[in-house]
Every structure is written in structure tokens, then in C-alpha cells.
Write a protein that binds this DNA or RNA. Structure first.
Length: 560
RNA sequence: GUGCCCGUAGCUCAGUUGGAUAGAGCGUUAGCUUGCGGAGCUAAAGGUCGUACGUUCGAAUCGUAUCGGGCAUACCA
């Protein structure tokens, strides 16, 4: 195809002296002759003052007879490529790195996810950051990037004080307290603090601050509480992430950046890049970037907030990793915040590319039949509960298959993860258990199943002695070859804008093509030559499908 | 008020350098059926692409206006 593109470019240059128009091929719609198509003639028609079909004819006349060309519709140039040529292309390009490329070689990216909140149990609110972030890491790596992942833990100091006060009020013992208790304690205590404030009292609030001060003073009791609470919380987070088969290289929480952040604020204040308000709060003006709401970088009481820690985080990363790209996997609500943050980074001289990988909310349908963001009051909210539910459904559906627990987990998480990539990430996801855990149609398990079948066929043929198949025409395999050959271009094409949902679309199309293929084409019973050729292709299909699914974090079960 | 996102089949969604008869899954209907693993495959029904105007040989796609839904709009994250 690349050959053909440059050939056509040359012809256009020779015929019309135009060389600034890219030539691209797309697939031809069903029921129309040809395999690949370009609309170049229509795009040139106006500039050269001829009608599109005439331009197409002039271009085709100059093209050789290696392929079959035809003019179609209003002026498309369609190309028919033989199945054998497609097979030869795949054979020449295939390697153990097939699909990967080195466009990101020498470049470093930091991907921040899932940025869990340590005060509460892992909720579905952090499902999308996790799945999207993990896939982003995999996709960048497939394009040759060095990737560092960072769980930017929500561990600001305040929850600690709230926890201790609530914990002491709850009367529970330190040995028996769980993350769920701590989550409930946190919610209850926050509520009590709010009520207290409404009455003009501040007894609990004072206690909260006292415990924070004790912790800073390394008081033995406070340190014991802190270590215990952090362990409970981190163990829980690690456990859930393990079930989801995701992990990060770093776990640098907000508290890690609080003091450096405050120091940076003073530094930039001294340099005149920040301004202090009369109430003591500090802002960074962003008018030059066209943003008329300044960024608040220090609260009026002198304490840090999100922007303070993120400020320090940007500089910390610059100093230690010098990234070319930083990807923040955080929901759409924070779009404006990140616009401000990135503008501030630029103003302060940071040059890396920042990418806010944002996504819509997970919604449910409420009693009035309207869509709204999922909340703790309704439906599933703990990610563990969602995973349990998914596994229970898989167990029920595969009751006769004697699946291992690990395979059940792979299928359950495969369904959940895949559903995150079915639509463009900007779209919200409607939490409908029958859809999010779907085992059929455009779903993870459908793709997993297609691959498990492939592996089973390969396994069944492992003792077969293969023969030479150079003169096999691959006509029955043409659709499959077209699909498989698309893979490298897919990987390099979607990385620029991190269009992860296109990978899911590809997995599904390939799985569909496979199902159609072995619906009518025998392998085990084929003649030796056909059987050898088909096994060769089946292996390539397995490689590509499992690699594409792996980009999304979807694992292949042994059996299903 | 201002900014951003969304509006395509009954439902959930694909669909960009503007291009061919607007596609898929679910659901519905009719077939195939102990197969190399049928959780599949084949086919049918289902559309004023929110609305209006504009640009163009050509608009779901670009522009303007407008309606509806959501989010954001400095001391939460």
C-alpha cells in the first residue's frame, strides 16, 4: 500500500504538478468491487479543473498492471489486491514484535492513574481511570515509549485526623477495623463535623487538628494510627488493583508533595510569578493563556490544596524523570482545572506535553427514568462489589464448563474492561449489568472466546507435520488477511489522540471475521497444504487478537 | 451569564483530512445446529443523523443560529 501511495503521488506530481495532497486508502464498503479505495481524484478535481472520473482515469492510465484498478461511484479509485499478495505482505512483515513500532523511541511518558482516595474503599469512581490508564500505558509502550505509571494517591493530611477522631468515637479496636469501617467512619465523622459547624461548635474540629499536629510531631500513638490506617488502605487498594490486573510503578501521594508545593509557592511569589491576596491566599494569573480565572495555589489559611501538590508534582517529575509527555487519567469534571494547571506549568517554564485523558461518568437510570451519575445511594458503588457481581454472573453462565477461579476472574474483568472501550471515552457509560457484563456481541468475552477457539485449534494440530504451501492462493482467507494486516497501522494511528476505543472496535471486527471464517472453512479436515497454510494464518490471528486485547488489559482465559 | 461535552434505529453506541446504499451490538422475526469449541453464523424488519439556515458537485461530518440534556466556572478533589 505504501508503494502504491508513493507511486500515485509521483503520478500526481507529473500530471498536475501537485505534491501537497496526501494519498490515503480506506476500505471499500460491502457489495462494491475492490478492496481498498482512495478519493484522491475527487479531491484534485477542482484544483485541476476536470471532473473527478476524468482525473481518476488519467491516474489509472499511468499505474502499472500489478494490481487491478477501477473507477467507482463519483470518482473513487478502487484497487483489488489478491489474497496471495496480502498473505505475502503479512509473511514479510510478521515478527514477534508485529504491530509494535518505535515511533516513541527515546521518549518518556508518565501516566497517572488510578489516583485512588485512601480515605474510602475503592469505588467504581476509580474504575475508568484504572482501565483507561492501563491501556494508555500499554499503547504507548507498543509505540516504543518508555512509560512510568504513578498512582497519585489521595492521601492528604485531613482524612487522617478525621479517621482518628471517628475511630475513637466508634469504639472499635485497632486490630479489627477494616477499610469498610474506615470508609464509614470517614463519612460519619465528616457529617458530624458539618453538623457541629452548623451549630457554631468546633470541638471535633479541634480534635482533628490536634491529631494532625501530633502526627507531625511524631507522637507515638499518632504514628501507630497513621501506619495502621495507611496499611489497611493500601492493602485494600493493592488487592482491588490485583483483581483488575493493573499496577503502577510509583505511589506518590499528595501528602508527599504538600511541603515542596508550599515552598514552590513562596519561590514563585518571590519571583513575582504568583500574587498574594489580602486574605493571604496565593494565585497564579493565567490571562496570557486566555484563562481569566486565576489558579488558586495556596489557601488563605496557608495550607495546601490540589493545585499546590500538583504544582510540586510537575516539578518533581521534571527533575527525576524529565518526561516528554504526562497523561492524567481523570474524569471530565476536572477539564477546566487541568487547563489551568497546564497553562500554569507552561507559564513556569515546563515544556513537556500534558494530556488530560478525560472520560464521562458511570451513570444509572433513576426512578424518574433519567440518566444520572452513579452515587452511593443507589446501585453498586464499591468496585469489589461490581467484580463480585461480574464473577457470579460468569460462574452462573459457565456452570457446566468447570472453569478455574482465575479464568472466571479473567472473563469477568474482561467484560468490565472491554465495556469501558466500547464507546469513545468522552461518552458516559450507562451502568446496565446486562450490558457491562455482556458475554455476547460487542463484548470482551466474545473476543476472548474467539481467541480461545483459535488456541484450541492450534493445540489440536500440534502433532500435525506441516508441508510447504507457497502455491496456496489464500482466497478463502482474504477477509481475515485484510483484518490482520490492519493491525500495525491501527497501533500507530490511535496513539496520537489515545483513541483507545478504536482498539476495541478492531478486536471485535477481527473476532467476527474469525467466527465467520471457521464457520465455513475446515482446518483439521483440510488437505495437508491447505491445513498448513491455514494453521500458519490462525497463529498470526491468535498473535494479533491477543496482543490487541492485551493493549486494553483484557486477558485470555485458558478455557471458557 | 460564559466555556466545554453530548444529541444518529426501540435501547446502548460506531461513523473526520466533507465522498459510494449512514453501520454494529442488544432486543424483535425467520433460518442453520452434538461443531476444529454454535457464547456462533445467515437473513429480515427498524433512520426527517435534535431543528433551521448557510458553504459545497457532494454535509451525520464544516459554519451560523436555535432547542434539549450534562459538566465546569479559585479556598473539595
Amino acid at each position: 500500500m505504501e508503494n502504491l501511495k508513493t507511486q500515485i503521488k509521483g503520478i500526481i506530481k507529473a500530471l498536475y504538478d501537485i505534491d501537497d495532497t496526501p494519498v490515503d486508502f480506506s476500505e471499500v464498503p460491502a457489495n462494491i468491487a475492490g478492496d481498498y479505495s482512495t478519493n484522491i481524484a475527487m479531491r484534485l478535481a477542482k484544483r485541476v479543473g476536470k471532473n473527478p472520473r476524468q482525473v481518476a482515469e488519467e491516474i489509472i492510465a499511468k499505474l502499472g498492471d500489478e494490481y487491478v484498478f477501477m473507477i467507482a461511484g463519483p470518482g473513487f479509485i478502487n484497487v483489488e489486491v489478491s489474497a496471495k499478495k496480502l498473505q505475502e505482505k503479512l509473511a514479510s512483515e510478521f515478527s514477534e514484535n508485529y504491530g509494535s513500532n518505535n515511533s516513541g523511541e527515546g521518549k518518556t511518558a508518565i501516566v497517572e492513574f488510578p489516583s485512588t482516595n485512601m480515605a474510602k474503599p475503592y469505588s467504581v469512581g476509580h474504575l475508568r481511570p484504572g482501565t483507561q490508564g492501563w491501556a494508555t500505558k500499554k499503547l504507548l509502550e507498543a509505540n516504543g515509549w518508555k512509560v512510568i505509571t504513578d498512582n497519585h494517591l489521595g492521601d492528604t493530611g485531613t482524612p487522617f485526623g478525621v479517621w482518628v477522631v471517628g475511630f475513637l468515637r466508634s469504639g472499635k479496636s485497632l486490630d479489627e477495623v477494616t477499610i469498610y469501617d474506615l470508609g464509614q467512619i470517614y463519612i460519619d465523622t465528616k457529617k458530624a463535623l458539618k453538623e457541629e459547624a452548623a451549630e457554631g461548635k468546633h470541638e471535633l474540629a479541634d480534635q482533628t487538628q490536634e491529631w494532625l499536629q501530633k502526627l507531625e510531631a511524631k507522637d507515638a500513638q499518632a504514628v501507630e494510627y497513621s501506619e495502621r490506617f495507611n496499611k489497611i488502605s493500601l492493602d485494600h487498594i493493592h488487592n482491588v488493583m490485583k483483581r483488575m490486573s493493573i499496577s503502577t510503578d510509583l505511589e506518590l501521594g499528595e501528602s508527599f508533595y504538600a511541603e515542596p508545593g508550599k515552598e514552590l509557592v513562596q519561590k514563585f511569589l518571590a519571583e513575582g510569578k504568583f500574587e498574594q491576596n489580602d486574605d493571604g491566599s496565593v494565585i497564579c494569573r493565567l490571562d496570557e493563556a486566555g484563562i481569566d480565572v486565576p489558579m488558586l495555589v495556596l489557601k488563605s489559611n496557608g495550607t495546601a490544596l490540589y493545585a499546590t501538590t500538583d504544582l510540586a508534582c510537575m516539578f518533581y517529575r521534571k527533575e527525576h524523570y524529565n518526561p516528554d509527555l504526562v497523561v492524567y487519567c481523570v474524569g471530565a469534571e476536572q477539564k477546566f482545572y487541568f487547563e489551568q494547571l497546564f497553562a500554569m506549568g507552561k507559564k513556569l517554564g515546563l515544556t513537556q506535553e500534558n494530556f488530560h485523558l478525560w472520560f464521562g461518568t458511570i451513570d444509572i437510570v433513576n426512578d424518574e427514568g433519567k440518566r444520572e451519575k452513579m452515587s452511593s445511594r443507589k446501585g453498586v458503588v464499591l468496585l469489589e462489589a461490581m467484580l463480585d457481581d461480574a464473577e457470579a454472573r460468569v460462574r452462573k453462565n459457565f456452570a457446566n464448563s468447570e472453569l478455574s477461579d482465575e479464568d472466571i476472574r479473567r472473563i469477568a474483568t474482561g467484560a468490565i474492561k472491554f465495556s469501558d472501550f466500547v464507546a469513545d471515552r468522552k461518552m458516559g457509560i450507562l451502568y446496565d449489568p446486562d450490558k457491562i457484563f455482556a458475554l455476547t456481541g460487542f463484548s470482551g468475552p466474545f473476543c476472548q472466546y474467539a481467541d480461545v477457539r483459535l488456541r484450541r485449534i492450534i493445540e489440536k494440530n500440534k502433532d500435525f507435520v506441516r508441508v510447504d504451501f507457497v502455491d496456496y492462493d489464500f482466497v478463502a482467507e482474504k477477509d481475515l488477511l485484510i483484518q490482520i494486516n490492519k493491525f500495525p497501522e491501527l497501533v500507530s494511528g490511535v496513539v496520537e489522540k489515545l483513541e483507545l476505543h478504536k482498539i476495541a472496535g478492531y478486536c471485535f471486527e477481527l473476532a467476527q471475521a474469525l467466527n465467520r471464517y471457521y464457520e465455513k472453512t475446515p482446518i483439521l479436515q483440510a488437505e495437508d497444504k491447505e491445513r498448513s497454510a491455514r494453521l500458519w494464518l490462525i497463529e498470526k490471528a491468535d498473535f494479533v487478537l491477543s496482543k490487541a486485547l492485551d493493549l486494553l488489559g483484557v486477558e485470555i482465559p485458558e478455557k471458557m
